[in-house]
Amino acid sequence: MAGNGSAPKDPNRRARRNKDVAPVRYITPARVVTQPDLPEFEVEIRPKDGEPDMVPFNWPDATRGWWDMLQHHPLVNEFFDTDWAYLLDTALIHASFWKGNLNLAGELRLREAKYGFTPEDRAKLRIFSAAAVEGESKAVLGAAKVSSARDRYGSTKRLEA
């Protein structure tokens, strides 16, 4: 028996239509922005029993590797100056995390999510790999060609036991 339940609501009477609130704006950068180097600077160390002293900040190897990895980010050619400034601040959080401040893990995760660092983050940002999309469309086309079990298993031979 078809049609269990009430009839669907008229689309014109729906409360939500899930349309985009604002149209998409496409902009071009005012200039080409390249990835800056990690800066060299000094930090103040305050010993308990002496005068404060300025010492050079040492970037952890993990943070240097993280920063180098950004040059291969799929959107790197679209980064603005503000993106690199935000990522430099994130590098400091990354360095503090790798120096043992585990309280910064949540902030680091949130900042990396804004740039699609994990597959889940990229899906939320609607960033998809062209290779994955191409592979999926090939799989769909391949599945559409198969119309029967005979087509799927036609080349297999039965072995007698």
Score class of each variant (00 low, 15 high):
12 N>Y: 05
56 P>T: 07
14 R>M: 12
30 A>R: 15
24 V>E: 12
45 I>H: 07
17 R>A: 09
47 P>L: 03
22 A>W: 02
46 R>H: 10
33 V>S: 02
15 A>M: 08
38 L>P: 02
18 N>M: 01
53 D>T: 13
19 K>L: 10
38 L>K: 05
36 P>Y: 04
12 N>M: 07
36 P>L: 04
22 A>M: 05
14 R>I: 03
55 V>A: 13
18 N>S: 04
18 N>E: 05
38 L>V: 06
31 R>W: 11
21 V>E: 09
12 N>E: 13
33 V>W: 01
48 K>F: 13
17 R>D: 11
9 K>P: 00
12 N>P: 00
55 V>R: 15
12 N>D: 11
19 K>E: 03
32 V>Q: 10
41 F>M: 05
17 R>N: 10
49 D>T: 09
26 Y>C: 08
17 R>K: 12
23 P>G: 08
45 I>A: 04
46 R>D: 03
49 D>H: 08
38 L>G: 05
40 E>C: 11
22 A>T: 09
14 R>A: 14
17 R>Q: 11
31 R>P: 02
52 P>S: 05
40 E>H: 13
27 I>W: 09
33 V>K: 02
17 R>V: 06
21 V>M: 06
23 P>D: 10
15 A>F: 08
11 P>Q: 09
44 E>T: 07
41 F>K: 04
22 A>V: 09
57 F>P: 01
57 F>H: 15
31 R>Y: 12
58 N>T: 15
34 T>L: 08
50 G>T: 00
47 P>S: 05
48 K>A: 15
25 R>F: 06
37 D>N: 12
30 A>Y: 07
24 V>R: 08
33 V>P: 02
47 P>K: 03
42 E>A: 13
9 K>Y: 01
39 P>S: 02
14 R>C: 14
49 D>R: 09
16 R>W: 00
46 R>A: 06
18 N>A: 02
13 R>P: 00
21 V>C: 04
29 P>Q: 11
29 P>D: 07
19 K>T: 00
21 V>K: 10
9 K>A: 09
12 N>H: 07
54 M>V: 01
28 T>H: 07
28 T>R: 13
56 P>M: 06
51 E>P: 12
42 E>F: 09
41 F>S: 05
59 W>T: 02
47 P>A: 04
29 P>G: 08
46 R>Q: 12
35 Q>P: 08
51 E>V: 15
46 R>E: 07
43 V>P: 01
16 R>I: 00
48 K>Y: 13
43 V>A: 00
